[in-house]
């Protein structure tokens, strides 16, 4: 059976995550055989389809180009996937807010379980996925005829872009009377989004106040980093909840994570310990954060931060 990958795209561009999901599809293909197709659904998505056709390992790009698929609302996109799924043994999407929104609809309508956010492929029916915010790794096996899967993109290396798949139109156009798009407000900040940033710098209760979070700005600017916070800093009212990194906030896994004035509570560690390199700056040398940090600096953050900014 073949494998279908739902392409992720924004603003007329194929999102980088898709190349990582195709890599996961290739790992499945090694066991299951079959072709890899990519579905591009949206409105005026010709250029995106061409970009998807260049991804290595893809045989065919299927393009559903219609107004009803604009903004990739879950209801019509789910129905489209249901209409196409019978040709496939696996349907994959990135574990992004788009993939997470639509894939469970496909699974439910096909009466199969979904495997969320896989990080490794053991075989065509067995996968690893983090549970308890990454504090345990589950190996799960699905006997369903159709496997509906979301993929943690950072766990798979992107495929190269030297392919030349065929591009075919999909005629299926569904109705959608249930939901409509009203508007979008994308972060205007030059800073990357927490979940996608290569560098994250977070402050904890040790920052002392919301104003002091400005000390992180200059460093974030220099490193192109997103700014996060521990739950303690959020609960203390320093910063809004959407900055929270941790089990009850955002789960991040950047190349570099800098924890400033964060003691390292379990719930925070759960949200950042898959980062490639962790730096901790804390004046308490007994702080548990140092047990997971690659580089620990025992220092007063109010002295260390300005110095760090000046030396980057």
């Amino acid at each position: 059976m073949s494998i279908l990958v739902l392409a992720e795209h924004h603003d007329g561009q194929l999102a980088g995550a898709t190349a990582h999901v195709v890599a996961a599809a290739r790992a499945i293909q090694q066991d299951s055989g079959g072709d890899i197709d990519v579905l591009v659904a949206g409105e005026n998505v010709g250029a995106i389809a061409d970009a998807a056709a260049r991804l290595d390992g893809v045989s065919r790009v299927r393009v559903a180009d219609a107004a009803v698929y604009a903004h990739q609302l879950a209801e019509p996109l789910g129905e489209l996937l249901v209409a196409l799924a019978d040709d496939y043994g696996h349907v994959l999407a990135a574990a992004t807010t788009t993939g997470k929104n639509v894939m469970p609809r496909l699974a439910a309508l096909k009466d199969v379980a979904q495997l969320s956010e896989i990080i490794a492929v053991e075989s065509a029916d067995t996968f690893q996925r983090p549970i308890y915010a990454g504090n345990a790794i589950a190996t799960v096996q699905s006997d369903d005829a159709l496997k509906v899967i979301t993929v943690r993109a950072t766990a798979f290396d992107a495929v190269a872009e030297t392919g030349s798949a065929s591009v075919e139109a999909v005629d299926t156009v569904v109705d959608n009377a249930l939901s409509s798009f009203v508007g979008e407000e994308l972060a205007a900040s030059d800073r990357p989004e927490l979940g996608a940033a290569k560098v994250v710098i977070s402050g904890g209760r040790g920052m002392g106040s919301g104003d002091n979070f400005k000390l992180l700005d200059g460093i974030a600017d220099k490193l192109g980093a997103a700014i996060g916070a521990s739950r303690a800093a959020v609960d203390a009212g320093f910063v809004p909840n959407d900055m929270q990194v941790g089990q009850t906030g955002k789960i991040v896994a950047p190349e570099l994570y800098i924890a400033v004035g964060i003691s390292g509570a379990i719930q925070h560690l759960a949200g950042m310990k898959d980062s490639k390199v962790i730096v901790a700056i804390n004046k308490d040398e007994e702080a548990p954060i140092f047990q997971v940090a690659d580089y620990g600096l025992v220092a007063d953050l109010f002295e260390a931060l300005p110095e760090l900014e000046s030396k980057l």
Partner: peptide, 18 residues
Amino acid sequence: RLTLVKVEPPAERQGGVK
């Protein structure tokens, strides 16, 4: 419907340097 084959702790992080 899913079989839980096994559950393991994640790879331990190496303690780093100060």
